[in-house]
């Protein structure tokens, strides 16, 4: 089953074609890599897919449903969650609260129920607490659950961001450079984590990465962008051996 499909997706900033004619097709359970040199438009693709930017051309579909032009909030509710290249955690909240806040669309109670402390409020808090504990357990963060997010070490902040994205129950997870700034040991652990998420949460993952060891290690398929256009697409080993791709990365 195709989870994400983009058709001729493109965006212009003024006269600049940041992304043009992008066609992706990601199947259920796939680990899909999006790579390319700096400024190729990878993060812009993520911003289109999460609704931060409205595409100038083209459409994209999640499980066959057209999501083009929806707001970030609606897109998240439909099932696309993301992490950020520069970590965007809620620094003044504890680790557990960071996950709990992402659960607030799943377990709902209205403002009046919270103000007057009606039974529903306590029920929701309990459910959130339970689910957050489970998620933190999976990511090995349960020891740090009362630590402020800004005090976490870098690798754990990355993990927490993934946990927070997963808390929204997505169908598709977008990871923007998850291994940036990690040492080889942390990267190896991250690769295990990503595989674990795919298998245990039955998740489809699209990731941007510069670390070729990670990309060749876990990605099933790859798409290479250069100057906003598609350079190559297909099975990981084939794409990485493509002479055009090597030229784009290393020069003539």
């Amino acid at each position: 089953m195709t989870v994400l499909e983009t058709k001729n997706l493109g965006i212009d900033f003024g006269g600049l074609h940041a992304v043009s004619e992008l066609n992706l097709k990601i199947e259920q359970g796939m680990l899909y890599g999006l790579i390319g040199p700096n400024g190729a438009g990878k993060t812009t693709v993520f911003n289109i897919l999460t609704g931060v930017y409205k595409p100038t051309f083209g459409t994209f579909y999640l499980n066959g449903e057209n999501l083009t032009g929806l707001s970030p909030i609606e897109i998240n509710k439909k099932g696309i969650a993301r992490t950020f290249q520069n970590i965007r955690l809620f620094g003044n909240m504890t680790v557990e609260q960071n996950v709990m806040v992402a659960l607030h669309n799943e377990f709902n109670c209205n403002l009046f129920e919270s103000i007057f402390r009606l039974p529903r409020h306590f029920k929701v808090e309990k459910q959130m607490h339970k689910k957050a504990t489970e998620l933190l357990e999976v990511f090995g963060l349960s020891k740090e659950k009362d630590v402020l997010a800004c005090n976490l070490p870098y690798g754990k902040q990355r993990k927490l961001e993934i946990a927070r994205a997963l808390a929204t129950n997505p169908k598709l997870l977008l990871l923007d450079e998850p291994a940036a700034g990690m040492n080889p040991n942390e990267t190896a652990e991250l690769m295990d984590n990503i595989r674990f998420i795919r298998d245990n949460f039955n998740m489809t993952i699209l990731l941007i990465e510069h670390d070729m060891k990670l990309v060749s290690g876990i990605c099933d398929e790859l798409t290479v962008l250069n100057f906003g256009t598609l350079l190559a697409s297909g099975k990981t080993t084939e794409v990485l051996n493509n002479p055009e791709v090597i030229t784009a990365y290393l020069g003539e």
């Binding site: 999460t50 909030i73 998240n76 969650a81 955690l89 909240m93 609260q97 806040v101």
Partner: peptide, 24 residues
């Protein structure tokens, strides 16, 4: 409450808050 956390999230990082589906 969950609403308090949502508002704190908006104050801390509006873009991230939107990305997890909080109606800013």
């Amino acid at each position: 409450s969950t609403h308090g956390r949502a508002v704190t999230a908006i104050r801390d990082n509006t873009i991230a808050a939107q990305s997890i589906g909080i109606n800013v």
